[in-house]
Simulated scan of single mutants.
Amino acid sequence: MDARSSEGRPPGPAQAPEPGRGGDAGAMRSAVLALHRATGLPMVFGGALAGRDRLRITELVGGRTDSLNGLVVRHGNGLGGKAMALGRPVWVTDYPRAATISHDYDGPVGREGLLSIVAVPIVVRRRVRGVLYGALREPLGLADRVVGAAMQTARDVEQDLAVRDRADEALTRLRPGAEESAARWEEVRAVHAELRALAERVDDPVTRDRLREATLRLAAASLPDPRDEQDGRAPRPVLSPRELDVLSYVAMGCTNAEAATRLGLVPETVKSYLRSAMRKLDSHTRMEAVAAARRAGLLP
């Protein structure tokens, strides 16, 4: 979980979120709920960056007051600010008396009655994107299980954000002139297939849905007008996730055997999914099915 660089330095000051990162708040909301379910801690909270060197706490479970809701935490200040600066988890067992942190936020923390607190930064590409907190209202040492659960939840969020960043970047690279776009579509299609395969291996349903949503955004980028169902065209066919997975690899030129290997299936199963997709798309060949899926905005 230590996000230090290969040179041993912690991440630099947090950067303002880049375009396309508006989903960080949603990822933090899911993380707070997941950590609360996993640990049963009396209070779990967190927030995403709200500027170059600060974050805003917006997601809370178990609060008794509104003192922490909307609180801005600056880089280096308090427990969360220290986690941001170091790029690794930090915790205290008696917050008001802790000598290892600054006490800029004693007022709001005290009004919530929080004593034992762990703060875990969300670090993607060596940049802090948010902080996840778990807390007790007693001066007790946080169990290894609790700290470990907080770190694992943070890793899950980091993976989620990294994958969605890659999808956003793939979309951004499509925007240059038309002479460059054709070559870049092949990379987008490879990312699309990779995201779909990854979604099937993710256990968390929220993260799985987000990955699938990212693939739909990539596919919709291929449409001249994303509002295709509002201009009189027939409704798009409904394919199952696995049918789309198979088609995404077929679109890259993979054989059934190659698609099976990448998806962890047997070739006969791939063939069955492909036949079903062809039937739904009213197609007679593999490439007809791919073309029909692209026209419908199901594939990039």
Rank of each mutant, 00 (worst) to 15 (best):
N77M: 14
G47V: 05
T58E: 15
G63E: 14
V146T: 11
E59D: 15
H284C: 09
A277E: 04
S248N: 05
R236E: 10
G78T: 08
D156H: 05
D106A: 11
E200H: 14
Q152N: 12
G20R: 06
P226G: 12
G76E: 02
D53S: 13
H36A: 14
A277G: 05
G23I: 05
D2W: 10
P176W: 05
A197F: 03
L281W: 02
T93N: 07
M28F: 06
V131E: 02
E194A: 14
D168R: 08
T100A: 13
K271L: 11
P96L: 12
L132V: 04
A277P: 07
A167G: 12
D106M: 08
V246M: 08
P17L: 15
V147C: 09
E7D: 15
L174Q: 09
R196M: 10
P89T: 05
R242V: 09
P108R: 00
M43A: 08
V191Y: 04
L299P: 01
V191F: 03
A3T: 00
V206N: 01
V90C: 06
V73H: 02
V163S: 05
T93R: 06
R145W: 09
G47Y: 06
T39C: 11
D53R: 04
S240A: 15
Q159T: 13
R279D: 13
S181I: 00
R175W: 00
F45K: 02
R137E: 13
E186Q: 13
E258I: 00
E158S: 04
V90K: 02
R279H: 11
R217Q: 15
G232A: 12
A154R: 02
L115A: 04
A257D: 12
L68R: 03
R175T: 13
Q15Y: 01
V32D: 06
A251C: 11
R217E: 15
V250A: 09
G23E: 08
A16N: 12
L281T: 04
R196I: 09
R54Q: 15
S6N: 09
Y95Q: 08
L244R: 06
R111Q: 15
L33N: 07
G76S: 07
T255H: 03
T172F: 12
A16E: 14
M278R: 15
G62R: 00
R184D: 00
G148Y: 00
G297R: 02
L223A: 07
A149D: 10
G113N: 02
D24H: 04
L33M: 10
M28Y: 05
P89R: 00
A182E: 13
P17A: 13
V90M: 06
D2H: 11
T100C: 11
A197M: 03
S5Y: 13
D245E: 14
P13C: 07
D2Y: 10
P300M: 03
S67I: 02
A221R: 08
G23Q: 06
M278D: 01
L274C: 04
G22F: 09
E179G: 05
G148P: 04
V238Q: 12
D168T: 11
L281C: 03
L161T: 03
R196G: 06
E186M: 05
A31T: 04
V61E: 12
A199Q: 01
E288S: 12
D228C: 07
P13T: 11
D245C: 14
S6M: 14
A220Y: 03
S272C: 05
R196H: 11
P300Y: 06
K82R: 14
S248H: 04
P96H: 07
Y105R: 00
